[in-house]
């Protein structure tokens, strides 16, 4: 059975320079489509993949990723904004790797564009009033 799933991979800084995705593809016969990527030396790397292949290969591939120390997140989780806590300061804007926050030029409020959000969760602890919430 062929499966295709969207996943978010967080690479600890020590793994950023290793060919993990290369091995994932080569050894487990999976194909991938990069949806988003943010890799900066000495920082946590972020990769959003659509990963496809045989179910058994897919499971083995995920097992391999877990073993290397990569944190895997399914895209089925969702980041939502608690509107009553948001103060519209804008601290999230430069933190979000996919530019899901924008400052509205007229209202001067911070707009959260859910469609751009990959649920990486970086904004959650970066939000001073803790308005961003992870929902499963």
């Amino acid at each position: 059975m062929i499966v295709s799933k969207k996943i978010v991979l967080h690479f600890p800084s020590r793994l950023v320079d290793q060919p993990i995705v290369y091995r994932l593809i080569k050894e487990y016969d999976l194909s991938f489509n990069i949806l988003k990527a943010s890799v900066i030396p000495d920082e946590e790397g972020l990769l959003v993949l659509e990963l496809s292949g045989e179910q058994s290969n897919y499971d083995k591939g995920i097992k391999y990723l877990t073993k290397t120390g990569v944190k895997i997140q399914s895209l089925s989780q969702n980041v939502l904004r608690n509107e009553s806590r948001c103060t519209h300061c804008g601290a999230c804007i430069t933190i979000c790797p996919t530019n899901a926050f924008e400052l509205d030029k007229i209202s001067r409020q911070v707009i959260f564009i859910n469609e751009k959000c990959i649920a990486c969760g970086l904004c959650i602890k970066a939000c001073p009033p803790r308005a961003m919430e992870l929902h499963f």
């Binding site: 103060t87 519209h88 804008g90 999230c92 804007i93 409020q109 001073p128």
Partner: peptide
């Protein structure tokens, strides 16, 4: 890129 900690809307 710049961001504000002070809410202009507020």
């Amino acid at each position: 890129p710049t961001a504000s900690l002070s809410s202009y809307a507020g």
